[in-house]
Design a protein around this nucleic acid. Structure first.
Length: 669
DNA sequence: AGGTAGGCGGTTTTT
DNA sequence: CCGCCTACCT
């Protein structure tokens, strides 16, 4: 069963004897299939305990797909701690062993917003008036963590980063994280690594336990991830890596293509290449291979079209005067095709900002669409507000939550009071919550303030009390009502913010609904921290709008790739760079986008686009000229007709987009 | 303490 | 363009 319908190379990979192996798997060659079959094969044919196989994926979605497929193949429910993303697997690990690094088991996982707030606190505490914003500092710290550089290693920190005072910021940030009993994304892995590295009895236990490690999307692993895996690998070295160097699109997040490029040498591992593509037609594959052929740094492989039944429709290339027109065309085209039963559509954009105008037109055409990766549900303000209550009830140390909700809804506790609480907490090394309680007991506040704080604290106490006594759904409702949050929304609803607050109320209902699916608060909060969920997927939708990054691993009958313009795709940042590294990554992204399509691919660009509130002119993407004309059905200019527009440019002030265009024209004459 | 007007800066991509 | 922050007002 498991081994049926595999081609020779796939079969060879699935039944490979023990030891390290790399499966180089091009787009659409059945990568996931090989990985899940391998898992099932090990369990069924080799008698391996499913609990001793670690299967690491890049997204939560891929992880649940593996679980489902394996469960189905083996006809038993697989629910292992060891199948998941790096972050979710090691979050669970860290919960078990966190005391070693000074965290309590109920530590919270901070999202970007909270991390930024913390950095801000740190900067103000250090009295640095840093020019840089906290976002840049934060991403620098995350990079350091990806590269496995500890805050305590000042020399290495300074060697890797040129940001002023980065060492002291990083240091204090780490300290604060522990104080508020929290972990950021990077720490989930970094702490885990340190625990394993410094405690041989723990490491040995896991090493003897984990027999096989399967890694999906190996080209996207970064330093810390790879080192973690190597640490856990026992003497049998059963490491099964699946990946495609041409689909490495996360270098900006620390991913090292070198991991996959050097793996065969490092482990003396054989390489199996999967090159038979079952997904796309010949034109699409040719276009993909022509584009990626412009990259220098790759292992190199050629995909062959193995799906003879698929129609060889050529790629449709279209140009438009404006982004609005482009979006309209997409919606129009889809609406003409969508009635023909089970056909899937996807629109893949380079950046989320492109989504708005497209979504607009889809709505106009009343098309059922779904956005993946837009504004995330758990990051919405109202949702985060309520979650802050939950977090504070769950853990006294959650200072960021305390700060967020102490005066939300308004309780008349202002900045002055909060500052006193914070100051006291610093002096005595206690949490904000404890600090406020202490000051209250000492009768530190004026009577009026005192009453208000007492009320707030008793609210939190009530939450703590109820938390264990009732189910999560009721608990959620309690918090929303009892905190006065719902009341606040309803009062505001009667004013100008009517519509906005109605959706907020809807979202809170959705939050309660989401909570009801968990049996305890810990599990729910973990989910919130790690899973980037959108609002419920309604199953019927067969039009998906998402970023190119989000599309990896997916396939659709019709794929639209709008916005192929210099400065959008490839992105402006990539163009600014002197070396070609980012440009090559953009090209791989193009490769990923193109190879998502089964039978129909539509690429388009607009010669003007509205960005930053101004209309900017743009030039067709260089990637277009990298593909041979014969793959396109239409003969649209890939260079655009700049001439008529040049005088336009001179007459107006220079916007960033125009600057880019002028520079581009200079370079290309 | 809380509300609001107007200035400013910022944009890839995500676990 | 839009959201955030600051400065100033009630």
């Amino acid at each position: 069963m498991i081994l049926d319908n595999l081609n020779t190379e796939q079969y060879e990979a699935v039944v490979y004897k023990n030891g390290p192996i790399l499966v180089l798997s091009g787009a659409g060659t059945g990568k996931t299939r090989v990985l899940t079959s391998r898992f099932a094969y090990l369990v069924q044919n080799k008698g391996v305990n499913p609990q001793s196989i670690m299967a690491v994926t890049f997204t939560n979605k891929a992880a649940s797909e593996i679980k489902n497929r394996v469960s189905k193949e083996l006809n038993l429910s697989i629910n292992s701690h060891w199948i998941g993303t790096f972050h979710s697997i090691f979050a669970k690990f860290l919960r078990k062993h966190c005391s070693i690094v000074g965290l309590k088991p109920n530590f919270t996982i901070l999202d970007i917003e909270d991390q930024k707030k913390l950095i801000k606190q740190v900067i103000s505490f250090l009295k640095l008036d840093n020019e840089l914003n906290e976002g840049i500092i934060l991403s620098e710290i995350q990079n350091l963590k990806d590269e496995m550089i500890l805050s305590t290693d000042n020399k290495a920190v300074l060697r890797h980063s040129s940001i002023k005072d980065i060492d002291s910021i990083y240091n204090l940030y780490q300290e604060r994280l522990v104080e508020i009993n929290s972990s950021d994304f990077g720490d989930l892995l970094l702490h885990s690594y340190n625990i394993l590295k410094n405690n041989s009895q723990i490491l040995d236990k896991y090493k003897s336990y984990l027999d096989h490690i399967l890694i999906d999307e190996f080209q996207d692993t970064n330093v810390i991830q790879y080192e973690l895996i190597k640490l856990l690998l026992n003497e049998n070295k059963n490491i099964f890596c699946v990946g495609d160097d041409d689909q490495s699109i996360y270098a900006w997040r620390g991913a090292k293509v070198e991991n996959i490029l050097n793996f065969p040498d490092e482990f003396k591992a054989p390489v199996i290449r999967l090159t038979k593509n079952y997904r796309s037609n010949d034109s699409i594959l040719r276009a993909a291979s022509e584009i990626i052929g412009h990259n220098k740094n790759r292992l190199g492989k050629k995909l062959e079209c193995a799906n003879k039944e698929i129609k060889n429709n050529k790629i449709i290339l279209q140009s438009f005067y404006s982004q609005e027109e482009e979006s309209l065309w997409i919606a129009d085209t889809i609406s003409n095709l969508i009635n023909h039963k089970d056909v899937s559509f996807s629109i893949l954009v380079r950046m989320t900002a492109q989504m708005r105008s497209i979504e607009d037109k889809l709505i106009k055409y009343a098309l059922p669409y779904e956005i993946i990766g837009g504004p995330r549900f758990f990051e919405r303000k109202e949702v985060k507000d309520i979650i802050a209550y939950l977090k504070l009830a769950h853990s006294n140390d959650s200072d960021l939550s305390f700060e967020r909700i102490i005066n939300l809804p308004r309780r008349g506790i202002g900045e002055q009071t909060l500052n006193l609480i914070i100051q006291n907490s610093r002096e005595n090394k206690i949490s904000f919550l404890e600090s406020s309680r202490e000051l209250l007991n000492k009768k530190f506040f004026p009577q009026a303030v005192s009453t208000k704080i007492t009320l707030f604290l008793s609210l939190i106490d009530k939450c703590k009390d109820l938390m264990h006594k009732t189910n999560l759904e009721d608990f959620g409702i309690f918090v929303i009502e009892e905190s006065g949050y719902m009341k606040m929304l309803e009062i505001e609803k009667n004013t100008k913010k009517k519509l906005e607050n109605e959706t907020r109320i809807e979202n809170l209902k959705e939050l309660v609904n989401a909570m009801s699916e968990f049996s305890n608060l810990e599990e729910f909060l973990e989910h919130v921290g790690l899973v980037n969920d959108n609002i419920k997927n309604s199953e019927k939708n067969n039009i998906t709008l998402m970023t190119l990054h989000g599309a990896k691993g997916l396939e659709f009958d019709h794929v639209f790739l709008p916005g192929w313009e210099e400065g959008i795709f490839p992105s402006a940042r990539a163009l600014e760079e002197k070396c070609n590294k980012s440009l090559e990554e953009e090209r791989r992204l193009a490769y990923v986008g193109i190879t998502r399509a089964k039978s129909n691919l539509y690429i388009s660009y607009a010669t003007s686009r509205y960005t930053y509130g101004v209309n900017n002119f743009s030039v067709p993407s260089r990637f277009l000229s990298e593909m041979n004309n014969s793959v396109f059905s239409t003969n649209i200019s890939k260079e655009g007709s700049f001439k008529s527009k040049l005088k336009y440019i001179d007459s107006e002030s220079l916007s960033p987009g125009k600057k880019r265009m002028l520079e581009f024209l200079k370079k290309h004459k």
